[in-house]
Amino acid sequence: MKRKNNDTRLLPPAGLGERLRRDVLLNWRLYVLLLPGVVSLVLFKLFPVAGMVIAFQDFSAFRGITGSTWVGLENFQRMFTDKYMLTLISNTVIIAILSIVCVFPIPIIFALLLNEERSRVVKNSVQSLSFLPYFISSAVMVSILATMLNPSTGIVNVIIRHFGGDAVNFMARPEWFRPLYILLQIWQTFGYNAIIYIAGITAINPELYEAAEVDGCQRWGKMIHVTIPGISTSIITMLIISIGQIFTVQTERIILMYNPSNAATSDVIQSYVYRIAFQSLGFPDYSYGTAVNLVKSVLAFILVIIANKLADRFAETRVF
């Protein structure tokens, strides 16, 4: 970490209390500005982290944190004997890996194609439309998907029937959950993520293209030898970031797409935690849910730290 906060003001040596007094006297306006931020940090960011102690309790909704009994590592032991955990973890990881493998390359390809487009009108209008889906809520998106895939009235099944096929209830089929989730992910993020690559392409020195042309490069040659290397840093950065966020699934979307029929593939850690706490048919299991989430959070934390280190080393950027 670089030291950039060398204070230029010269202060006579003084005791801690005296220095504090001076500091406050000099900077009280800044501290006033900072106060809401610190309060919000403590109450809304740190306090919930502290609340994770219920993972070590048998938390009772009525008794609260102070009144509930402590059970040590019982909830974690239960996790290791719970067979359903395997399903949850593999669902979570598969969705995460698919999200990288299938979703990651699309915006790059889109940016490259857009760069080759000659008509300004097409280029601008397509790009403008492309990130509209990013701003549509999960609730609307999943609702639209359900409308389009409705087994009796949806366009997809109407077309399937038109060609003599049998209607498929896509939203209730475990084998269709992942493709649909990924499809939504692509649809929602490709335009948004492409903006970064498009900006990268715009920033490439035109002389490089001219030089490539002198070397006899055609369109493909220029794309491979100039454009792609030109945005390689962005690509690597984005890739590392997405690997770091492997456990960050679109919880809202999954909860909205989940139903008991497709649970075999659609139930991931986050949706499970939500369900056992807020939609349980029995007693809500706040403690177990928190324990499961705690393990996930620790793993995710380690991954993000590694990714950040990697990004720092290979792409000379950091996420934070």
């Binding site: 970490m1 403590v42 740190l46 306090f47 982290v49 502290a50 609340g51 609260g64 944190i65 102070t66």
Partner: peptide
Amino acid sequence: MKRKVTAISLAILLALLMVLVGCSKEET
């Protein structure tokens, strides 16, 4: 680097402190 370590350990301390604060708040 050192600063980072202190920051993190302080954060943990603060978090623990919050448990106490949070618990007393729980009731009110």
